[in-house]
Design a protein around this nucleic acid. Structure first.
Lengths: 185, 185
DNA sequence: GACTTCATGTAATAAGTTACATGATTCA
DNA sequence: TGAATCATGTAACTTATTACATGAAGTC
């Protein structure tokens, strides 16, 4: 079949309960968002494709004049989801502009602290959002969902800490050489 | 001007030395690759665009019948690079298919260990490549480049460790509930 | 002689973001 | 009544990957 990962995000989310495109987007933004984002521009067209392939089934759930289309997974859709879960994951990619700026900071060394400081702030903000989610979500998430949340929190904490340590090193001037001896600590 | 981040990867790499598109790709694959990938399909057209904008200057450095075009940064290009370094970084995005499969593992719980095991292996492989790079690159990298390398190594180690701990929890059966009490440890 | 590496490039496709358009309902 | 939220969708654009084509030079 060869669907996009974003298609499996949809299949995974509607496995068990019917959801509208709008609701899918809301849930994504508080969950997979942190390791797999999806925009309306992907979700709505993808729902149509999935319905055309009979992997989901949409039904009108309009209330008054407000149109609302709720999608449920079909038996074929669940099969497709299970097949995907059984295939080995391959994609783990990162795009980190802050790290890129740090990487090239030798071209303008005065910018290095700022790159690190912004990176620290971005991770701290993400950490704040994840902690807020954790405090409101713990009871209705699956253990696996909860595990990915804990991973995101621990990872963000790690990144914040690393930035702080590195800023400290920059300030203390120890950054002028490659401290090979530090690697083993 | 509004260039893509990939354009700045090129500007940053050729700041100081002339490089061909081929060499840029090779260097990227051993450095920024781990937080900002770039393919030939981006590099060659981008070099043309940058030359059209007079931010880089290409020159023939053919040897015999083998054509070879080496690019150097211009004064305007260096200015553009410096301006970019001074702007706050915004993009830090991750796409992690393994985490996605773990997130949806409640749909087919038997696949959870496999998702974690694959995630662990992918991080371990990355760690191996980074360590190999570290052992060969330490002397000619800038302290900032070396810092990003150490970050990549520490982060990969963290991810490998997390996967191992999580696998251990799965095996011991403690995964059946959301262990709120564990969060504070 | 065959394989690998060096070297440049394009075309097709896929994936994803942003901005916009539209309109109902809810809440202050 | 005005703002926020609910709700669906598309168009234009950007970004990036993959596969392909071409050919020289070096190596086993």
């Amino acid at each position: 079949m060869a669907l996009s990962s974003t298609a499996y995000v949809i299949l995974g989310l509607i496995d068990g309960r019917g959801l509208t495109g709008y609701e899918i987007k809301q849930i994504v933004d508080r969950s997979t968002r942190f390791f797999w984002a999806a925009s309306y521009g992907q979700i709505y067209p993808e729902l149509r494709r999935l319905e055309a392939a009979a992997l989901v089934k949409g039904a009108e759930r309009s209330q008054g004049d407000r149109r609302r289309r709720e999608y449920r997974i079909t038996a074929a859709g669940r099969e497709e989801l299970h097949a995907w879960l059984q295939r080995p994951p391959a994609v783990i990619e990162t795009r980190d502009e802050a790290l890129l700026k740090l990487f090239f900071a030798a071209s303008l060394p005065a910018t290095a602290p700022s790159a690190l400081e912004h990176k620290r702030r971005l991770h701290a903000e993400k950490l704040g959002r994840l902690r807020e989610i954790e405090s409101s979500v713990a009871e209705h998430a699956t253990p696996y969902q909860y595990a990915t949340l804990r991973f995101g929190i621990a990872l963000s904490e790690f990144c914040v800490r690393w930035c702080e340590e590195e800023l400290e090193e920059l300030r203390s001037g120890r950054h002028a050489r490659n401290r090979t001896e530090r690697r083993t600590s």
